[in-house]
């Protein structure tokens, strides 16, 4: 901080926090929406961390090879679908525990990404463009902070769509029925395993897209430490959002803001406790897990078929 008024630097931190929250929250949002959908159908996919990382790698590689970042996003979604289908298919075998399978898939996705991703650490791939929302300000820092990736808006629209779909469509009700009472779903003639497989596949797709955001927008390159557990924190985030897609947006923004805390303080020159502030999302995760363990409303709204609830 130089001679500039403290107010201005406060504002810069504020805008950096908002912009950072939006940037950091986008992958959270996609993974959380995917996990929310999967959990609504009564299954937990802890492997979304693997989807996220493999999606990031694939997105980057495809973007590099085709020259189109959006092709990369599509490919990342496709890889997510493949992992999701595999998870769903294995889980429908008798006596398979979805949590254990999820952990295995987390390792598998990460391992595959590291294996195939080695050649892509150095080269630079085309990135996703941004929508500048800071044009009203003359401050370049504000303008820079408000460069918003279109995926963020897609994520928000998706959240609204999922929220609407779960209440107002037959598919939505079928997913909720399956997640709340498999016996009832079977009595209705619903193929429970198929619903869950599709929900896991769709969830996997969203997580893959979230991964593409990591490598193609922010931070915007492929390396092995890219995700740092965001796929796992999204599980906590879904519990915090009480399985409501709209609340997932708010929760993702909150996590995003926590994640942006360190970098935005650094942007005005506060380097003290940088690593501590970077740990904010993890601390937040712990706090949320403890708080929601006592939460009665979470107990009511949890899909009853979830293996962690039973």
């Amino acid at each position: 901080m130089t001679q500039a008024e403290p107010l201005a630097s406060m504002m810069i931190v504020f805008y950096a926090m908002i912009g950072g929250a939006i940037r950091v929250s986008t992958p959270f949002l996609f993974v959380a929406l995917g996990e929310c959908l999967t959990e609504k159908s009564g299954r937990i996919n802890l492997g979304l961390e693997g989807n996220l990382i493999l999606g990031a790698m694939t997105g980057y590689a495809v973007s590099y090879n085709t020259g189109s970042a959006w092709m990369g996003v599509l490919a990342a979604g496709g890889v997510g679908v493949v992992l999701g289908v595999a998870h769903g298919w294995i889980c429908k075998l008798p006596k398979v525990n979805d949590i254990a399978v999820g952990l295995a898939f987390m390792g598998l996705g990460t391992g595959l990404a590291f294996f195939f991703g080695k050649p892509y650490i150095q080269p630079s791939a085309p990135r996703l463009g941004s929508v500048p929302l800071g044009g009203w300000s003359n401050n370049p820092q504000v303008q820079q902070a408000l460069q918003i990736n279109p995926l963020f808006f897609i994520g928000i629209m998706l959240a609204v769509f999922l929220w609407w779909m779960l209440r107002n469509t037959r598919w939505g009700l079928v997913i909720r029925v399956t997640g709340d009472s498999a016996a009832s779903a079977r009595a209705m003639g619903v193929n429970v395993d198929m619903v869950r497989l599709l929900a896991t596949a769709a969830g996997g797709c969203l997580a893959g897209i979230g991964g593409a955001f990591l490598s193609l927008s922010y931070p915007g390159s492929w390396n092995e430490g890219l995700s740092s557990g965001q796929g796992l924190m999204a599980v906590a985030l879904v519990i915090f959002a009480r399985w409501n897609p709209l609340r997932c947006v708010l929760a993702a923004l909150l996590f995003g803001a926590a994640g942006a805390l360190g970098p935005s303080l650094q942007s005005i020159g506060v380097s003290f406790g940088y690593h501590f502030f970077n740990a904010a999302p993890y601390i937040l995760t712990l706090v949320i897990m403890i708080a929601s363990a006592r939460s009665r409303s979470a107990a009511i709204e949890a899909p009853r078929e979830l293996s962690i609830i039973k």
Binding site: L173, V177, S181, M188, G189, R304
Partner: peptide
């Protein structure tokens, strides 16, 4: 059945509508 087939987290109306084989794809509540 002796055990209920209603889905606890759905409302009575949602339970009735979703039980219909011809439940519409988009439900106009």
């Amino acid at each position: 059945y002796q055990h209920f087939t209603l889905v606890p987290c759905l409302t009575a109306a949602e339970n009735l509508v979703i039980a219909r084989p011809d439940a519409p794809g988009i439900i106009h509540w």
